[in-house]
Nucleic acid binder design. Structure first.
Lengths: 118, 118
DNA sequence: ATGGAATGCTATGTATTTAATAGCAACAAC
DNA sequence: GTTGTTGCTATTAAATACATAGCATTCCAT
């Protein structure tokens, strides 16, 4: 399986292991942010519920992401399903503003493509 | 080349094209956030300067990310180099808190691995 | 205890993405 | 015309993700 990024250790693309680079390595993987998002929005979920919330993630990838997020201390597994830990929620709260911002961004992009295509 | 995610259109892993999912698709690619980070921290950069700031990104990937970020309206190319556009800076400002947070996260993880490995 | 249903997850084969490296075409200075 | 910088492409290999099937375990009703 993929090497799991850890701050302080060399990370993909960074010898320094600066924390933000480790974080970007962790989050810059398919579905990583989506899983945190889904987990924090919907509360504790079973594996299959989480899979449903992510619409079309494959079990292999979900499982890999969950392992990574657990090793990163963001997610925990309890009897009954997966839960975001304190750090996971904090991260979600930092990510949350992106939700609102992305709507404006989408609108601006839509306008732009109006102009360029019609 | 990879399909570029656009809000409002089906995105990898999401039929709905909800803006946040499009954004996650865009940012959930290797180096995407790192490039925005580097560009906004260091100001306008030439291709090769950007490459240097990212330590070890390959030109092919950098070029791909830059194309995507330009299409997403986050980055612009001017004579003399690449610049973050307004949306790019806004996104950077939303991402910036992750920098501080990641240090605490790193510290907590380090403690945890102390406990588990020694 | 047997049948079903849900659970978490692995296995497999294929496609996509990224990496690593070399190198080209355009331009500028000398 | 040589040397250096620029932005970028080509190529080949490795890593990652996808899609699908399916297994082992647990639960519950019968």
């Amino acid at each position: 399986m993929a090497k799991i990024p850890r701050p302080g250790k060399p990370v993909r693309g960074s010898k320094s292991g600066v924390p933000i680079m480790a974080l970007f390595d962790l989050l810059g993987r398919r579905w990583a942010m989506g899983v945190i998002w889904a987990l924090c929005k919907n509360g504790p979920c079973t594996f299959r519920e989480l899979q449903a919330h992510c619409e079309s993630i494959s079990p292999a990838v979900l499982n890999t992401r969950l392992k990574e997020l657990r090793q990163a201390g963001l997610v925990d597994r309890k009897p009954g399903g997966y839960v975001a830990k304190a750090d996971g929620y904090q991260l979600y709260e930092l990510l949350a503003p992106l939700g609102a911002w992305s709507k404006g961004w989408a609108a601006r992009l839509a306008k732009k493509s109006d102009r360029s295509s019609g």
